[in-house]
Design a protein around this nucleic acid. Structure first.
Lengths: 345, 345
DNA sequence: GTGAAAGCGCTAACAA
DNA sequence: TTGTTAGCGCTTTCAC
């Protein structure tokens, strides 16, 4: 095979060089740094590239340590939980709304356990298959920030409390909204307000609980009971059953850590003959589109899932361009009052 | 820098070779084909690789035309529609349930229009950034099958009718379920059964409509009216409003092309003072987890979104291994009767 | 400003 | 069975 490849394969940088009457090196310089080439030749090169429909090879660039234009998303969740997850699709949509304008792609990998998770991060970044990561579902004692730091991988944490790691973080701040909710419950005379927590280890779940506890105390109420619902409809239903089955005085309101779990709660409350909000006031978290269509329409804390995705992607992209990222970005959740929480007294 | 790289960077194939006392070529052979190497040295090489924690470079392999272990998903949808989409997360979950066990990753790219879509497929595969594609949302006169064929890209179409292209196809067959639904409506005395179609151009939307029309005729009923709901809650609500606003006799039942649109319908019907199913019988399509929690619980056609994803991924993976794929795989939808469709007479 | 050449980490064809 | 060698397409020195 001669040097020149004029078959019906993809054009290479050599084809462009030949057509522009320069060398590969010149083409590379012209199209990357833009420096070290006269404007005349650069235009010629650019035109040749366009005429040939040339675009650089991902693989060859990666081999030289150049960024590929991909960001990684390693998700350690059971695939099942994605079946109806409220966060992930919206989040992804936010990411893509930014990436699609930037010629970037998302590389997604779901992993079953911590060990595979670690190996996946290392592998994906070790070979620069991805330029950086968006990190979600940060957990208590999560080892990823340290690992990512060690790898030198650009990364942005999304949906974790401020200061939970030394990576740039996008926080979904619902403190004030949750306080407003609890105040509303308290004003309406509720004294026993239960909480259904999504997960035992995820920081965002813990933070919602903390905010609820804190607000309860502010209004002179004792927090509790708390059940866990795994962020699923079924889990929310079961948690609600457990709350109803507890001894002692029944709570008169429940704050669910997600709308999905609250939907599960609706069902169990209905079957138990408890009217919402008359017998049990209910509030969710997320404001999925469905919340306002539920019966009764659900009071909830609106989370900006898409914005979390787009802000994370935007900041990560800026980091990849060498900019210094803001260490903390806060998106504020908003209390959406609907019928399920009842009226204040 | 000397030939040997013993710094704290990633080990390369040369490091493994040196440690095993062989050459790079031997390592490559041992770990790929496995042939042309004595079992003794192969073991030695394998061990060296493990000790060094070596894994091959994606980029270098891709540069040699080897598969990378990635499958591409190019989605031409507005990011907004993903916010609460019933199909995509489950589908993705099905894909990942297969891929995660196979050391494969998913490369996802959302594109706004047909032109970008085509360019994305070409670029992604042209450089073998992905080994093959899962193709969704096949449309009327979709040019992707031809393009993919031209590129020589392994691809599997998911969720399209049988025979809609010459690519291997996973079909979500709901014909019998839809017939069963229409029969049930007809038996209960319904004569005017409306349909809310998800999309004008997507084949799966058209197919649902065809099956409904066909069943209507089988039972001696005239199909119609039809409105379009864009597969969203809001779109379903608006379509329902249009159905109610039409002149002539009002339909007494509506078959929605998705549960999400039916949820929108619930809301509008409720506001209009129409009871489900007494004043208007309702059925959806998908069987999202929420359907059984709706009030009243929704009759719907269960679609195997996860199975669609896992079957697609499995077949694509087999193709990548050189196996001949089945041209058609059919997953059958199942009618789930709940309260929203009313009782037969 | 431009060309030449080395090399990124790997695979595969060819010798030995 | 093994080692040697030539690329894959690109970036990046280093001369000129």
């Amino acid at each position: 095979m001669t040097a020149g490849n004029t078959g019906r394969k993809r054009p290479t940088i050599s084809d462009v060089a030949r057509r522009a009457g320069v060398t590969k090196g010149a083409v590379s310089r012209a199209l990357n740094s833009g420096t070290g080439v006269s404007t005349g030749t650069r235009d010629r090169i650019r035109q040749a590239a366009v005429e040939l429909g040339w675009s650089p090879s991902y693989a060859a660039r990666a081999l030289n340590g150049k960024p590929l234009g991909t960001i990684g998303l390693v998700v350690r969740r059971s695939p099942e939980i994605l079946d109806f997850d409220a966060f992930f699709p919206s989040f992804l949509s936010g990411i893509e709304s930014v990436l699609s304008g930037e010629e970037h792609a998302t590389v997604i990998r779901f992993v079953p356990d911590a060990q595979t998770e670690a190996a996946t991060y290392e592998r994906l970044f070790g070979d620069r298959f991805v330029d950086g990561f968006l990190v979600t579902d940060l957990r208590v004692d999560d080892e990823r920030p340290a690992m990512l730091h060690r790898l030198g991988a650009p990364a942005v944490v999304v949906g974790a409390p401020e200061g939970s790691s030394d990576l740039p973080t996008i926080t979904n701040d619902a403190e004030e909204a949750i306080r407003g909710l609890v105040r509303r419950f308290a004003d309406a005379g509720h004294r026993r307000i239960a909480h259904v927590q999504g997960d035992r280890h995820m920081l965002h779940a813990l933070q919602r609980r903390r905010h609820w506890e804190q607000a309860m105390r502010e209004f002179g109420l004792e927090p509790g009971p708390v059940e866990y619902g795994g962020y699923t409809i079924v889990g929310g239903a079961q948690a609600t059953e457990r709350i109803l089955a507890r001894g002692g005085e029944r709570p008169t309101a429940v704050f669910y850590g997600s709308d999905l779990m609250a939907i599960g709660g609706y069902s169990v409350l209905g079957e138990s003959g408890l009217a919402i909000p008359a017998d049990m006031a209910v509030a969710g978290f997320d404001d999925i589109p469905l919340a306002s269509f539920a019966s009764p329409p659900m009071t909830t804390v609106r989370s900006k899932h898409r914005a979390l995705g787009s802000a994370g992607a935007r900041i990560l992209l800026d980091m990849l361009k060498g900019q210094e990222p803001p260490l903390s970005t806060v998106l504020t959740g908003e209390l959406c009052i609907r019928d399920s929480s009842g009226d204040p007294a």
